[in-house]
């Protein structure tokens, strides 16, 4: 696999405070065009805050974030989604009343263009668009092997499948950058293996960089090209999995000691 050194996402020195709590302080990182970047760190290290800042959900007080050279620090979340940054959530945040299929179709929102008048008439433009995007969504359903549940309401699905639907929804947006916030939390070994396989499939098929937050070190070391370690809102290390394993500061952050 050829590696490209073009920087897709550039985070420059961002700091994020909630009142007196310093969630992120001066974090910088570069994400290249072809890599899976793992973000690890103990609980409360600021991993989710980092992802929330990228997707526009939090506004860092200092620093800037550039996506494909464009500054996105002050953009609204829906504008950032339009640029092609898609994500999953730590706690599953699906549209519980919709079917798995409609959840994915809803994520096609930014790629669809019919307005409510086309929709009201349905025949013609809206129908064509529905079918055209349905094809795209069906490909994702195939990829993630959720054919059997496409017409099931997601609120009633078991946890593992909901996680998978959520990954599908993130993909349906046709992202140029995928942010995965603990996609394997609460899964057993087998489900984790499946999910890791899906993530690698997605990475290969869609050709997009991925930022992955995950606590399972085995998974992270196996599938990530590079790792960033956060502790108390600061970046304490960055490098390949092997470098990180040997890093004394990281070992200290995880295991304690002096």
């Amino acid at each position: 696999m050829e590696k490209s050194d073009n920087v897709k996402l550039k985070i420059e020195n961002i700091s994020l405070r909630f009142g007196g709590v310093q969630a992120l302080s001066g974090v910088s990182l570069d994400l290249r065009e072809r890599e899976i970047l793992g973000v690890i760190g103990p609980n409360g290290a600021g991993k989710t805050s980092l992802i929330n800042s990228i997707s526009g959900f939090y506004r860092p007080q200092e620093g800037d974030i550039y996506f494909e050279g464009k500054k996105i620090t002050r953009l609204a979340p829906d504008k950032i989604a339009e640029l092609g940054i898609s994500r999953t959530f730590q706690q599953i945040e699906l549209y519980t009343g919709l079917t798995a299929l409609d959840n994915l179709m809803a994520a096609r929102h930014v790629r669809m263009h019919t307005n409510f008048l086309d929709g009201a008439i349905f025949l013609g433009r809206a129908q064509r668009e529905e079918v055209q995007h349905r094809r795209v969504v069906e490909d994702i359903i195939d990829l993630l092997e959720i054919e059997g549940i496409r017409k099931k309401v997601v609120g009633a699905l078991p946890y593992g499948q909901r996680k998978r639907v959520e990954l599908g929804r993130a993909l349906a947006l046709e992202p140029k950058l995928l942010l995965l916030d603990e996609p394997m939390a609460g899964m057993n070994a087998e489900e984790k293996e499946d999910m890791a396989r899906f993530i690698l499939d997605v990475y290969d098929e869609k050709n997009i960089p991925i930022i992955l937050i995950e606590h399972d070190m085995g998974v992270v070391m196996d599938i990530c090209d590079r790792l960033v370690v956060l502790e108390f809102g600061r970046k304490i290390a960055e490098g390949t999995p092997d470098e990180i394993k040997m890093n004394q500061q990281v070992v200290k952050a995880y295991l304690g000691g002096d």
Binding site: S55, F57, A76, A81, L94, G97, A106, H109, V110
Partner: peptide
Amino acid sequence: DNDIAAEVMGIN
């Protein structure tokens, strides 16, 4: 169903 997710998935 989920206004937070809706916004992050590109709905104004």
